[in-house]
Design a protein around this nucleic acid. Sequence first.
RNA 1: UGGGCUGGCCGGGCGAUCGCGCCGCCGUCUCCUCGGAGCCGGCGUCGAGGAAGGUCCGGGCUCCACAGGGCAAGGUGGUGGGUAACACCCACCCGGGGCAACCCGCGGGAAAGUGCCACAGAGAACAGACCGCCACCGCAGGCUCCGGCCCGCGGCGGUAAGGGUGAAACGGUGGUGCAAGAGACCACCAGCGACCCGGGCGACCGGGCCGGCUCGGCAAACCCCACCUGGAGCAAGGUCAAGAAGUCGAGUGCCUCCGGGCACCCGGCGCGCGCACGUUCGAGGGCGGCCCGCCCGAGUGCGCGGGUAGACCGCUGGAGGCUGUCGGCAACGGCAGCCGUAGAUGGAUGGUCGCCGCCCGCCCCUCGCGAGGGGGUCGGGUACAGAACCCGGCCUACAGGCCAGCCCGUCCG
Length: 126
Amino acid sequence: MLPASSRLVDSASFREAVRQGRRSGSRTLVVHLVAPTPGAAPPQVGFVVSRAVGNAVVRNRVKRRLRHLAREHVSSLPGSAVLVVRALPASATASYERLGADLGHCLDRVLSPSADSAAPRSRCAR
RNA sequence: UGGGCUGGCCGGGCGAUCGCGCCGCCGUCUCCUCGGAGCCGGCGUCGAGGAAGGUCCGGGCUCCACAGGGCAAGGUGGUGGGUAACACCCACCCGGGGCAACCCGCGGGAAAGUGCCACAGAGAACAGACCGCCACCGCAGGCUCCGGCCCGCGGCGGUAAGGGUGAAACGGUGGUGCAAGAGACCACCAGCGACCCGGGCGACCGGGCCGGCUCGGCAAACCCCACCUGGAGCAAGGUCAAGAAGUCGAGUGCCUCCGGGCACCCGGCGCGCGCACGUUCGAGGGCGGCCCGCCCGAGUGCGCGGGUAGACCGCUGGAGGCUGUCGGCAACGGCAGCCGUAGAUGGAUGGUCGCCGCCCGCCCCUCGCGAGGGGGUCGGGUACAGAACCCGGCCUACAGGCCAGCCCGUCCG
């Protein structure tokens, strides 16, 4: 679980991250990252799990697994970064290991400096 | 021991590890109106359901409204009780089903009116002659003891007893009667209605007597009758909340020393301006909708395209749960004792792993097969589903399991 200070709370930041952030997708999820000016503020992570994923029980489980997995990556994010993880319908039946692998892979893509200039909207090969 | 009916209950357990939220305590630091507040860290307690679900009823709570009458709208619908209340629950009545335990019923009115009854059938709601039965008339034929009789075809009538259709055919059985028949008439039975007697708080039940001889269903079609019903909802509502040409909030763009600033635009409150109407000859507003009527009333309406809003309180102790006892057939109620039980707000209550349990399949053992029982380093499964102001219900979803009572049958004594 993430501590409260690392959670993304306001809807404006969500909108900004999804529309303007660097994006990388996989079969189970899509990540959006805005890493502006490095500062002292801690990075924030938010999650979007729509009704297409499943009923309330399934959506809660997916969100909890993603929050738990995101803990391990918070320290590697730059300061005042805003990360939004959007779950796709396939995440409902995916195992914990698959979710962790997809999240790590997409984060690597979106954080790698080589992709910065060449392909700002690179896709994960699945 | 086989089959069945009803009611109640549970709905995985233990452990390891990494975390999250509320609350309490402790510590460092910061602010400070010196009472406290905040960030971070540590420890401890607590932390989803029987349906938390659908949001279909009923209430509590909050704000607004609250002379009255009529109309309209919506709801309820056997009787009596329970309850804060209900469309819920209990008991009983009536009708239907079952050998029975028991189950089912949107259970007022169809002789107030309108409307509808498919298909089949001759005819379906002031019924109806297809076959049949009977009388009469005409024609052809046969028999004759010359009185007639039998049979066929056609016409015109009578007839609802029989056949056939249908969910339903205008009571049933027996007799009188008749050309054949018919409640045309009679007896009994069923049903309808009026009256009387008895029982029950009541729905209603039992009995007697009389009447005309008989009357279909649908009100979950309109409708009629009786009774009930203010509106909105925790985004309710309140506080921070000052100000005064301003302030608060949302959005977009630009700049930034990352504290924010500027511009534009929209909304709330307040203010200003313009126009219109008006202050007892009453603008406008309220009384859920409309009308009458009543009340408030000195200001009110327009200049309006859009947008979805900070923190805190409300926020969890309540028609609360459990046990015992008393009253009651029961639902439930009285009294006594004990218990303390989630409060998130991009939304905590979890992630991962191990062992065990349970179910299904397969295999093995016991056994004459089966049933039952036991075992397996085997494989698969472990449901429906996540609080959001709080209760009482209803409805719907659900792997698997437990307990109790009752009914019918079989066997043994």
